[in-house]
């Protein structure tokens, strides 16, 4: 079946099998391998991407469900997303790095979704409950998210590039 999916600002039209999962569409059809497959059972969140600005687990979404929707992945060059990547580097919010694409995409969502709420430990922990990290113990990830929040608010200069 034909799908029309906008990924990172670029429109893709592909003929796919209905059972193709969004994560496989991104990795195998578009070669966007930044999005990782972790548990493949919608537990770990490594495959988190944004669909119309909201975080979803792309291993549990059919590519067909994303038809005519907009997907944002870790490869996107959004300045705020890049500020988050910077913060993860500076605060060492990763060790092996496998969960990191999902962590960063969920961070992108939780910072946007915070509105007037304080981005404190409590808020971050609640919002990060769908992402697993087996290395860091989460402390450095929480610090990275707080740093990212500051960077975005203060519109700090961004260093990360592809």
């Amino acid at each position: 079946m034909m799908v029309n999916i906008r990924v990172n600002g670029k429109q893709y039209k592909k003929d796919i099998e209905p059972r193709l999962l969004l994560v496989n569409f991104l990795r195998d059809e578009l070669n966007l391998t930044g999005t990782h497959i972790g548990c493949d059972t919608s537990n770990c969140g490594a495959c988190t991407v944004l669909m119309d600005g909201k975080s979803v687990k792309s291993c549990t979404v059919l590519a067909m469900q994303a038809n005519n929707h907009e997907i944002t992945t870790i490869e996107h060059e959004d300045p705020e997303l890049n500020a988050i990547k910077d913060a993860y580097v500076e605060e060492q919010g990763l060790q092996c790095g496998f969960c990191t694409p999902g962590m960063i995409m969920e961070t992108f969502y939780l910072l946007k979704d915070a509105g007037n709420k304080d981005v404190d430990d409590d808020y971050i922990k609640k919002k990060l409950s769908g992402n697993l990290c087996r290395c860091t113990g989460y402390r450095s990830i929480i610090d990275s998210i707080k740093k990212a929040n500051e960077k975005i608010r203060e519109k700090e200069e961004i260093h990360v590039s592809r």
């Binding site: 919608s42 969140g45 988190t48 669909m51 909201k54 975080s55 979803v56 687990k57 549990t60 979404v61 969920e106 969502y109 939780l110 919002k127 409950s129 769908g130 992402n131």
Partner: peptide, 9 residues
């Protein structure tokens, strides 16, 4: 219910 990603979908 579950986690934020699952609730979004």
């Amino acid at each position: 219910v579950a986690d934020p990603q699952v609730r979004n979908m």
